[in-house]
Design a protein around this nucleic acid. Sequence first.
DNA 1: GGGATTTGACCTGG
DNA 2: CCAGGTCAAATCCC
Length: 291
Amino acid sequence: MKHNDSNRYLPKSSVCDDLPHACNHRLVLKEISKEQSLVMQLRAIVLPALEMNQNSELVSQMFQSILDCSSMVIAELLHCQSDAPAVDMLVDDKETVQRISNDVIEDSARPQHHHQNKRRRVAESMSFETPVPHYDGHQWRKYGQKQINGAKYPRSYYRCTYGKEQGCKATKTVQQYDPVTNTASDHSIMYKAIYYGRHTCNFNGNDSGISVPKDNGETNTHRNHDLVHYNNNQCSIVSVTCSHPDDHQTFLDGNVVHDTYGDIIPRNINMDWQLDTIESVQLDFDNWDWR
DNA sequence: GGGATTTGACCTGG
DNA sequence: CCAGGTCAAATCCC
């Protein structure tokens, strides 16, 4: 577990004890998610500004501690809600959403075929509805895309970027919801992200702790190198992504807002929707009870 | 040139 | 046999 330090921020008793109603859970989740987004925005502005300042490491750690703290609270709330009716953040579908079951067979005990299991066991998966499926604190490499029967949008297949070099077996699939089945109340574009397997990768390859865009960050047009902060074994997103009404995604990169096509969006234009639609992208899977 | 994505082919469980 | 998952060559992009 990588969050020992953050434990000191939380009371020993469950957060749920003081939150008897599901609606309170949702409200708290929403507010904490909002707080997380704001902290991440702030960090995205502050850290690049500090550059190599000697305090940058300390500031980075402080931001990380704050985010760890809220991640712990979110994880705790989600844990509490696993016994409760539908949660907005989790897909309410027993066929696909679930924590890893207790009777999971160890990898080593499984029959080894030339290829990996073609059929995944849904019991080992965990799925989320999210408007920002690509920003969950881990780096993923896409290895396939498939048109699924009856679905309007294709399903994309991702594996951990460090899968090969570190043997991390984590994978995920992302599929955009059909408009007719989209349960989002505001009809924003929603995706279903299903995670398989636990990350065993170790992020230690970055001395500065911050990956620097190849183009020096003026306009972050590279496709896969989102600004990510690595801190020992964990990483979390520094750049902030939010839904855009016309299908674009925008990034708050340093003090520049731009979309996926590299176009810089003037900050005095329509910033309201960007702040309104920002969702939490910090999913702390290390705090899930993977069994 | 290197790394990531795309996409058609292939494999396999149901 | 079909649908879903993966592979790997081709392509793209920095």
